[in-house]
Design a binder for these strands. Structure first.
Lengths: 118, 118
DNA sequence: TTGAAATATTATAATATGCGCATATATCTA
DNA sequence: TAGATATATGCGCATATTATAATATTTCAA
């Protein structure tokens, strides 16, 4: 398979990992540093197994890395710059349309959230 | 539904549209300007109906816009900056690992392709 | 070593997506 | 108007993804 197509496929597969609300939220939580599974689980309001499998998907694509501390597992962004790139991508939500006022403010709110230390 | 979750869902849905090799290729083709359906169809080696439905997905999410010219339909990026953002995202393919030499060069090749006028 | 806490894995039912095929629509040209 | 060209749409099936529930593994602490 030619390089270009290979790349396109790899890239598409990366994007498909990102294209999931809960996985995006996990990345959002990790933008400020390490978190253990239970902490993420509570922040997202998900079950423990669900949280764990979402993390394993992110891990499989090397978006997050783990570190064992006692009986906990701490997760962090493998490449912290990913968070900034994701924030930049928010600009394309709602496409080229003229979005509703409310929607614009929602975008801005989330942008803040991701940018600030919270 | 709170703003934040709404946004996350919207964003995830945008990313899912991007997470498809052929759709990425279409966006790649459009990075330099307008193209009609037949031209895209030939560039991608897809059937006409398939090309058309891929375009309709991109259109539904306002990533591309159309313009009728005679009996042709010309498509273009609604937000041309999307292409640059996608190029930046290539950095995260293969995650934080140390990728094989060959793989790195493939990334670079594609980056060139997207950046240059071809 | 036994129990409890933290995390991971597996099986599975429900749902969504991808894609080929047939067909429809619209526009131009002879 | 008939035919050809360009594009779009609807349907159906195969496959992929999501999410829940049950179960397993690891580690600590008493």
């Amino acid at each position: 398979m030619p390089h270009r197509l290979l790349m396109t496929k790899e890239y598409a597969s990366l994007l498909s990992v990102l294209s999931h609300p809960a996985r995006l939220q996990i990345l959002e939580e990790l933008r400020t540093g390490e978190r253990d599974v239970t902490s993420l689980q509570e922040a997202l309001g998900l079950s423990q197994p669900r949280t764990s499998q979402l993390l394993s998907v992110l891990k499989a694509h090397r978006l997050v890395s783990e570190r064992k501390v006692g009986r906990n597992v701490m997760y962090h962004l493998t490449q912290p710059e990913l968070a900034a790139w994701l924030v930049a991508g928010l600009a394309f939500v709602a496409g080229g349309s003229v979005p509703a006022e409310e929607f614009l403010s929602a975008i801005e709110a989330v942008r803040q959230l991701w940018s600030d230390g919270n």
